[in-house]
C-alpha cells in the first residue's frame, strides 16, 4: 500500500472533502490528525460549501391535524429521494428528527425546529444526526428570526426580533427587543436596539 510520507496533508484533505458526512464521522477514528482535521471549523465550512449544491434535496414538512388521538404525531418530515422529482417517492426522515415541530431552514446546514406549544426550539443537523435543545428565550416568540454560521465565533447564531407595543395613557408606542443565541456558549444575549422601531413600523406598514 501507499506510504504516508508520500501523501501531503493538503491532498489527503482534498480527498476527505469529497466524502459524505457519514464517512467522515467514521474516519475521525483513523488517527489523531484526521480527527482534528475533520472536526476543524475550516474543514467543516469548506465541506459544507462544496456539497451544498450538488447534494440539494427537497425536505418536505407534512402537517396534519389529528384531534382524535393525541399520541399521533401531527408532523412528519420526509425527503424526496429523486432530486429531479421525476420519481415522487420519499424517505421519511423522522429517525433523524427525534422531535417534531415547525421546521425552518436549512441555515448553513442546520434546521430550526420549533415546538410552539412548549415554547421549545431545537437546532438539528440532519447530516450528523445531532439535535440540541436551546435554553428558553426570555422574550418568547419572535416576530422574525434568522440563523446562520458565524465564522468569528466558530458557531451558529440565532437572532430573534420581537416587537412590543407600549400603551401609556393615550400614547401608543412601539418597542423592540433583539435576542441573540450563540451555540458556542449555548446562551442568549438580549439587546435593546431603538433604531429597529423604525424598521418594524415600515415592515408592518407594507
Amino acid at each position: 500500500m501507499t506510504n504516508v510520507e508520500n501523501i501531503p496533508y493538503e491532498l489527503m484533505t482534498l480527498i476527505l472533502l469529497k466524502l459524505s458526512v457519514k464517512s467522515l464521522l467514521r474516519f475521525r477514528c483513523v488517527c489523531k490528525i484526521g480527527y482534528a482535521l475533520i472536526k476543524s471549523p475550516s474543514f467543516i465550512s469548506t465541506h459544507l460549501k462544496s456539497h451544498n449544491n450538488e447534494d440539494a434535496h427537497l425536505v418536505v414538512h407534512n402537517f396534519e391535524y389529528r384531534f382524535i388521538d393525541d399520541s399521533n404525531y401531527p408532523f412528519e418530515y420526509s425527503l424526496f429521494v429523486d432530486k429531479t422529482l421525476k420519481d415522487l417517492s420519499y424517505q421519511v426522515l423522522d429517525s433523524q428528527f427525534p422531535i417534531h415541530g415547525e421546521l425552518n431552514g436549512p441555515y448553513d446546514g442546520l434546521f430550526v425546529v420549533w415546538q410552539r406549544e412548549y415554547d421549545l426550539i431545537y437546532l438539528c443537523n440532519i447530516a450528523t444526526r445531532e439535535t440540541r435543545a436551546l435554553p428558553k428565550c426570555r422574550f418568547g416568540y419572535p416576530h422574525i428570526y434568522g440563523c446562520g454560521y458565524d465564522p468569528l465565533s466558530d458557531g451558529y447564531k440565532l437572532v430573534f426580533l420581537r416587537l412590543f407595543s407600549l400603551e401609556d395613557g393615550s400614547n401608543y408606542s412601539l418597542d423592540s427587543h433583539v435576542s441573540l443565541y450563540s451555540s458556542d456558549n449555548d446562551s442568549w444575549r438580549y439587546l435593546q436596539v431603538s433604531e429597529l422601531r423604525q424598521y418594524f413600523c415600515r415592515y408592518y406598514s407594507c
Binding site: T2, V4, V30, C31, K32, Y35
Partner: peptide, 15 residues
C-alpha cells in the same frame, strides 16, 4: 472501514 482507510493512506493508529 476505518482499518481499510488506515491501510489506504498508510496511516498508523495513534489512538
Amino acid at each position: 472501514s476505518v482499518e481499510y482507510v488506515r491501510a489506504f493512506f498508510g496511516i498508523e493508529n495513534d489512538f
